[in-house]
Design a protein around this nucleic acid. Structure first.
Lengths: 206, 206
DNA sequence: CGCTGCACATGACAAATGTCAGAAACCCCG
DNA sequence: CGGGGTTTCTGACATTTGTCATGTGCAGCG
């Protein structure tokens, strides 16, 4: 008997083209078997419950719930399922959040399919794998200097909402909100809250 | 002789994983031949010059120069080369710009590889193809209601710069700048200039 | 020509935002 | 326990931003 039980995979990515192509390429590897595909966060969760894959390969950006949220849920529901996050444009902070959510691997889409297959095996074996370049970025960017409240308020401010609305949603006084925004902006070296939001986004801190 | 001259393709996408997977899938089609790949805009241009492909499949978002810019250059240098733009998240305005730049096709990455192959053939035959859903979005979004100056000022405001800086860069008084921002915001139905910038971005008007 | 509509431009005023000094609550460590 | 530091929170003040009334010039039209 040369046949070994293959590694069962769940593939989640909102771009059908990529997902399909990926499935085809990974299928070329003898020891990998794609058992389920999903296009959204909730769908990925449902598929995972139904098929209990060995490894879930999740895109970071998906409609419904992003890869990190899915990873968190999977951690609770299917502890045996290893999570590997794949992303187009890696923001340093996302890496940290992903690892915090129990992801075992984090790679950019710039790797080759061959390499991805190897990484899937690595993760399945119980080891971790983080793309070296992303790791370097994450270390360079460091930890978020923002306090919990600062981050919360920045999040509310993200879509350009006026302070009054932020204050209401965060149950704070307007003055306090302005204060948090101000200190967040100065910590990030931004002139105003809007550039602060942009910077925090880039570093993955919101 | 059953062999027909295949359609020669150039594939340009900054994500190696996707590009490689795509190349593999398209290679399965008898009549398609990937003759060159590129990861950046300039690289795509160089490759096109070197290999003179029949169809160039370009990602919209690439480092260096985006798909539309590449399309413009190709139009001038290699008029025989049909351009097909592929994008992850289609903004209505981009479609218009792409067609204006001479692109013959515009599709989201949510199509299947099979479908993409058909579309490549369609485009190669000299016809145009635009994804119906994106077309509907573009029609719904309509033309930009912004005047030249309004768009210019919004562009400067895009990265959160204060009005004073925008005024200097646009060689206008601060009052005038605020005026344009204000009218642009009201045209877009936004509360303030920052959400206006976001909306204009989403519709591809900046 | 005179009128209308529109893009472009400005400054004055009102509203929203950013900055500051400081107070209460909390945590950590000696 | 007590003191040093940090987070959370507030109001007062200065600055920035948004709104409005208004003016100019230009293109199309009766």
């Amino acid at each position: 008997m040369t046949s070994v039980r293959p590694i069962r995979l769940l593939l989640a990515d909102d771009e059908h083209l990529i997902r399909g192509a990926l499935a085809a390429l990974l299928a070329l590897e003898d020891d990998l078997l794609v058992v389920a595909e999903a296009a959204t966060g909730p769908e990925a969760l449902a598929m995972a419950r139904a098929h209990a894959p060995d490894v879930a390969v999740l895109d970071l950006q998906m409609p419904g719930a992003d890869g990190v949220k899915v990873a968190t849920s999977l951690r609770a529901e299917l502890p045996a399922c290893r999570v590997l996050i794949v992303t187009s444009h890696g923001r340093p902070g996302h890496l940290k959040r992903a690892l915090g959510a129990g992801a075992r691997g984090f790679v950019p889409k710039t790797v080759s399919a061959q390499r991805l297959a190897e990484i899937i095996r690595t993760v399945h074996a119980g080891n971790r794998y983080v793309d070296p370049e992303l790791a370097a970025d994450a270390i360079a960017a460091g930890d978020s200097p923002l306090t919990e409240r600062e981050a919360e308020v920045l999040e509310y401010a993200a879509d350009g909402a006026p302070v009054a609305e932020i204050a209401e949603r965060a149950a704070l006084s307007q003055g306090t909100v302005r204060n948090y925004l101000s200190s967040a902006a100065s910590k990030l070296g931004a002139e105003n809250r809007h550039t602060a939001v942009r910077l925090a986004r880039e570093r993955g801190w919101v």
